[in-house]
């Protein structure tokens, strides 16, 4: 546990990432792989070697511009989603109690906690998926780029286009692979075949599925394996070019190989998207996220850099949970 812990926290790329955001969407080498936790230490033992081609040595060279104190502050000002005193009710039952947190842009934020702690309810509040549940309501504010998600001026349909979501259970539509990815584009009014083809290829490529399905784009999506279906759902969400990607336990129904593919994907995607992921799996949170929020009984117990949560939690409850003493 005391071995050297590689820096996993936010580093000084937020500004350039922000500037490069719109242009950097095309698949290209990801220099930020470097910042992946290096071998050795607690985190490495949790992480299966999904990238054997990257030896610890090649990852060792830290970027020269790294300056952690500066970026820490930037991260706080560079928040994409801002939550203030958010409560949530199912009928009269209060399931979220005064949640406040800032979710940074272009980072992966993990929500962990025992079953029933409200993390799914919280993530579904961000794109107002809870609206479809009768008698459910949120109180407080959630803003995205300063715009109140629950404000009167916010159109929920437009909001959900900007905030993509991937669900625990993969939910491909019973249509072809192509039509699944085209769905969001078509409801946006896109009819141009060439444009559709292009975006569909790009989305599937980004979701690391293109090579597996390029020869059967018009086959039913239901014939894909569970892991492929989940990546298809990610491609479908990416096709409409959202700013934020919410993932509600995206790998909990998948086998370890499919899980590691999804995790790699999350790692690649964070350069361009702000990702919020709910997970039951603490190793997964440690592997993929920059920031981690620990929920318990509807309250936010602790929210900090991921390695701080796992290595030096401030709260006793957090420590008990991440070390597996309960939950």
């Amino acid at each position: 546990m005391t071995a050297t812990v590689p820096e996993l926290s936010i580093h000084s790329e937020s500004v350039e990432a922000q500037e490069g955001r719109r242009t950097a969407r095309s698949p290209q080498p990801h220099p930020r792989h470097e910042s992946r936790p290096a071998g050795g230490g607690f985190l490495a033992t949790l992480r299966p070697e999904v990238r054997p081609e990257q030896s610890p040595a090649s990852r060792g060279g830290a970027s020269p511009d790294r300056n952690d104190t500066l970026t820490q502050e930037q991260a706080m000002t560079d928040s994409k989603i801002s939550v203030r005193d958010f409560d949530f009710f199912y009928g009269t039952a209060k399931v979220l109690h005064g949640i406040s947190l800032e979710i940074p842009a272009q980072k992966v934020t993990a929500l962990i906690g025992p079953s029933g702690c409200g993390k799914s309810t919280f993530i579904r509040s961000i794109n107002r998926m809870n609206d479809i549940i009768p008698d459910a309501r949120g109180v407080g504010t959630i803003t995205i780029d300063g715009q109140n998600v629950y404000g009167d001026e916010t159109d929920v349909v437009e909001l959900r286009r900007r905030v993509g979501m991937v669900f625990q259970k993969s939910n491909p539509f019973p249509k072809s692979i192509y039509d699944n990815v085209a769905y969001g584009l078509r409801i946006g009014g896109m009819r141009n075949k060439r444009q559709l083809d292009e975006i569909i290829e790009r989305s599937l490529t980004r979701a690391a599925l293109w090579h597996e399905v390029k020869d059967r784009l018009h086959a039913s999506a239901m014939a894909l394996s569970g892991g492929q279906q989940q990546r298809l759902c990610i491609a479908r969400a990416l096709a409409v070019d959202p700013e934020i990607l919410l993932m509600d336990e995206p790998a909990s129904a998948l086998d370890p190989i499919a899980t590691s593919k999804i995790e790699e994907l999350i790692y690649e995607l964070k350069d361009n998207y702000t990702i919020v992921i709910v997970t039951h799996n603490m190793q997964q949170a440690a592997r993929v996220s920059d920031r981690t929020a620990f929920f318990m009984l509807g309250k936010l117990i602790e929210y900090a850099d991921t390695n701080a949560i796992f290595m030096t939690p401030k709260e006793k409850m957090t420590e008990d949970y991440v070390t597996g003493r309960f939950g």
Binding site: I132, V157, R160, G164, N171, Y183, G184, G188, A237, V240
Partner: peptide, 15 residues
Amino acid sequence: VPGGLREGALALGAT
């Protein structure tokens, strides 16, 4: 019809 399909379509910005 699985509820997930309903949510999936809504989450993509469908009315």
